[in-house]
Simulated assay, not measured.
Amino acid sequence: MAWGTLINCFYIPGAFIGGLLSDCIGRRRTMALGFFLQAILGFILGGALGPIQTKLPLFIVLYGVFLTLGEVGPGATIVLTASESFPTALRGHGVGLAAAWSKAGAAIGTQVFKPILASWGGDELHGTQAVFLIGSGFAVLGALLAWFVLEDSDKFLDHGDQDWKNYLIANGYTNIEWGIQDGSPMVDNKAIE
């Protein structure tokens, strides 16, 4: 229980570092950086797991840093990037859809661990190495997707609202009333006089 508590403490600084980096270098770069650094450390852990496991404190620290990097990148930015990618009127649905996909991915990921470990015929060391190496490969994929697919968003959450309204109007929807009170546009929940 003590080792588990110690390992879980490594998540905490990752969230703070990721939050600070998100504002300094942007969400896309923070996510890509976290994924990429986690992949490098995962490949190191997967490749040299035998010698690393013989020194428990070394393994605890390296695995803890591995977890920290997961929070620096995707852990601290995934909800931000999901919410900033949708206009206000669709944000709840978009974030819910993104959360559903991530939960499905997590469920699938946990279910493939046992078959990967079992495919090594009881050789737990090589099975665990395979899990680290495969997971690190997915982290590289995540870094590439974050870098090349995600857009850098501006700091205003309503950046896509007018584009969405224009799209609706162009497709025949004319009674669009959100953001309007008594016929006046809203800014900070107060009608412009």
Rank of each mutant, 00 (worst) to 15 (best):
G121W: 04
A130E: 11
P87W: 08
G183C: 05
G14A: 04
G94N: 08
A106I: 11
E151Q: 15
G172H: 04
G73K: 01
G179M: 08
N175A: 04
L144Q: 10
G105I: 02
L58I: 10
G160W: 13
F16P: 08
A106R: 05
T88W: 08
K55A: 14
A170K: 09
A2L: 14
T128A: 12
F113C: 10
G50M: 11
Q38R: 03
M1W: 12
G73W: 04
L41N: 03
L157A: 14
P13E: 00
F66P: 01
I176V: 13
C9D: 08
L133H: 04
S83G: 14
L144H: 09
F148H: 01
C24W: 15
L145T: 15
F148A: 00
A76W: 07
D163V: 14
R28V: 07
G92A: 15
G64T: 12
R28S: 09
I17S: 03
A82L: 10
L33D: 01
A118L: 07
G14Q: 01
T81V: 15
I52H: 00
L125R: 03
G160P: 09
Y11Q: 14
N166H: 12
G137H: 06
K103F: 10
P74N: 13
F132V: 00
G19K: 00
A130S: 13
G160N: 15
F10Y: 04
I60D: 09
I116D: 02
G172D: 03
F66E: 00
H159K: 15
G135P: 07
K103L: 11
F43Y: 13
L67N: 06
A139C: 15
N189D: 15
K165A: 14
